[in-house]
Simulated scan of single mutants.
Amino acid sequence: MQTHYLSEDNSILNHFLGQIRNVNVQHDSMRFRRNIERIGEVMAYELSKDLRYRPIEIQTPLGIKKTAEIEDKLVLCSILRAGLPLHLGFLNYFDSAENGFVSAYRHHPNNDEFFDILVEYQAVPNIENKTLLLIDPMLATGQSMVAVFNKLMEKGLPNEIHIAVIIAAPEGIAYLEKHLPDSCHLWVATLDEKLNDKKYIIPGLGDAGDLAYGNKL
């Protein structure tokens, strides 16, 4: 797996990352969603450099201009619900992409710290021979991402697979490296220190879904 770390060089990305972590800013859910969306736009721009392009000619009012356009047939697929504002950021740039949504969550069958991953709701277009962008803001253990990936592969085989996350833990990256094909690209806005005993990212930012849309039962 090829991993790209986007926050190693200072840019406006780090400004947005700081705001989504800041407890004095997080209470504004609209601002939190908008910052996640803007991070998605920055990540989409960086990822776009790795796509395939074809030459085209554009008619202007005064002549012809040779340029290029994206050749890949893109499918954006987000993990509900936290992935929605990040998805929108990518869609702002890849506005002709097809869109898919999958639900995945930690299920605690014994009401203790043990959990497995349940993948339930799926609304996904055909991904066969397309470029799949799998989107989720947080990569903690990596189990949800791998579970969704495996479920999607039952529907078809993309030409290329890109995974985009905002905050990742080293344990989650190691899990993806072990369970996903070497040809996958992982795009990480920023890498954090570790997981705690409950498998949450430290220092992280809290629950991205709750911060964006309110606490759930």
Rank of each mutant, 00 (worst) to 15 (best):
I127H: 00
A140T: 06
K198I: 06
V102I: 10
D136V: 01
A168K: 06
E113I: 11
F149I: 02
F90I: 04
S144F: 00
H162L: 04
F115N: 08
I202W: 04
Y121S: 10
D136G: 00
R81M: 11
G83W: 00
G172H: 06
N129S: 14
C184P: 00
L86W: 09
M153Q: 12
E98P: 08
E98R: 10
L133G: 08
G156A: 10
P170V: 09
D197C: 06
E177L: 01
D192K: 09
A164T: 07
K155H: 12
P203T: 02
K199F: 15
N111P: 08
F101H: 14
N92G: 13
E193Q: 15
L118Q: 12
D112E: 08
L180M: 15
S78K: 07
G83C: 09
S103A: 13
D112H: 05
Q143K: 15
V148G: 07
F90D: 08
N99E: 14
A104K: 00
E154W: 06
P181F: 04
H107S: 13
F101L: 14
A164Q: 05
I79M: 09
K199H: 14
I167Y: 11
D192C: 01
I127Q: 03
E113P: 00
A189N: 00
G156T: 07
D192A: 05
A147L: 01
V148L: 00
Y105Q: 03
L134D: 03
S96W: 10
A147H: 03
L76S: 01
